[in-house]
Simulated scan of single mutants.
Amino acid sequence: MTQQPVSPALVSALAPEGVLRVSINLGNPILAGRDRASGEPAGVSVDLAREFGRRLGVPVELTTYDRAALSVEAVRADRADIGFFAVDPARGEGLRFTAPYVLIEGGYLVSDASPVTGNGEVDRAETRISVGSGSAYDLFLTREIRDAEIVRFPGAGPALAALRSGEVEVAAGIRQLLEAEAARAPGVRVLPGRFMVIQQAMGTPAGRGQAAQDLLAGFVEEMKAAGFVAEALKRHGIEGATVAPAG
């Protein structure tokens, strides 16, 4: 694909240490995980990070985190130059997001014995909903849930385990992860439909300047339009996530 030259000033704004420091969230396996053979980070967000580093003409340094909240904080605190996370108003302070590059559905998991059959039945008194603390769906449900209790766990794994152990009545999460959990062992089922669409975007510290933010935003739009994101999803065998429309 055609590459427009990036000015030295913009390269310095986005990679002030001469290397592009990238925050990668391994808590969302739709976008990143570890290669089974090498153990190195791999996935759609990793591919985008390496391509952006190539555009800037600088090496790429990946730092991985097990939870989205930790990945977000690394960028907000200027320990990383770019990151990959869901757009949410609660994350806006100190960060600037691009338009989303991938859309992912958020859903609910319940036990087979649960009388709940639809998403609209979840927000009720005496219902406990487990979430990964600081995740996009945690932030969303914190704003939207009125009667149910939100119970936070350090990641998706413990949140799903809480449902099977009976600590909660509902587990919220990325739909693909819930479907995988339901397929892993009997006893739970995914409610039909979705309660939110998670918009996965790139972000950079707010202090990097408008020109740097515009460059990153333009990169995301080009990667969507050129088919890079779609090809990466296919290459990594990701199903259920869709390329976001033009921003």
Rank of each mutant, 00 (worst) to 15 (best):
I238L: 09
A156P: 01
A148C: 07
A13E: 03
R54L: 09
F153L: 12
E221T: 14
N119S: 01
S133L: 07
L191G: 01
V197R: 05
V168H: 03
A32Y: 11
E93D: 15
G240M: 01
R54F: 10
G237K: 11
E167K: 13
D123G: 02
A74R: 10
A113W: 01
F84V: 08
L177T: 00
T142K: 05
V116P: 00
E17H: 06
Q200D: 13
P8E: 03
A90C: 04
E51G: 09
A161W: 06
V75C: 11
Q213A: 15
G193F: 01
Q213H: 15
G118V: 02
E222N: 12
G203W: 06
M223A: 15
A212H: 04
E144S: 09
G207W: 01
A161D: 15
D123Y: 08
N28V: 07
V243G: 04
R34V: 05
G53V: 09
A42I: 15
R124V: 14
T204S: 13
M1K: 10
V151T: 12
E73N: 14
A49D: 12
P89L: 08
R55L: 15
D112H: 00
G157K: 13
R208W: 00
A37G: 10
L62I: 14
D112P: 00
T64K: 06
G83I: 07
A230M: 02
G132T: 03
G33T: 15
L56Y: 08
I198A: 05
L215V: 11
Y108I: 00
S12L: 02
Y101G: 13
G43R: 14
S114Q: 05
P100D: 09
T98E: 13
Q4N: 08
A156F: 05
V75A: 13
L62M: 11
A212Q: 07
R55T: 11
S45V: 15
V116F: 14
T204I: 10
G247S: 13
T127D: 02
A201W: 07
A159E: 01
R146L: 14
E61Q: 13
R67V: 06
T98Y: 13
R55D: 14
R54M: 10
I24Y: 11
V44M: 11
R21H: 05
Y137Q: 01
V19H: 01
G118D: 11
A206H: 02
S45P: 08
V60Y: 10
R194Q: 08
E61N: 05
V46S: 10
G120V: 03
Q4P: 04
L160Y: 07
A232E: 11
A162W: 07
G173T: 04
E231C: 03
F153C: 04
G134P: 04
G237P: 11
F52Q: 12
P158V: 02
R164A: 04
F219M: 12
L62D: 10
S7Q: 09
V19Q: 04
L26N: 07
I198S: 11
I145C: 04
A68V: 02
T127K: 09
E51M: 11
L163K: 03
G33Q: 12
F140R: 03
L95K: 08
G155I: 07
R143D: 14
A226D: 15
A74W: 05
Q199R: 14
A113R: 04
Y101Q: 09
G118C: 01
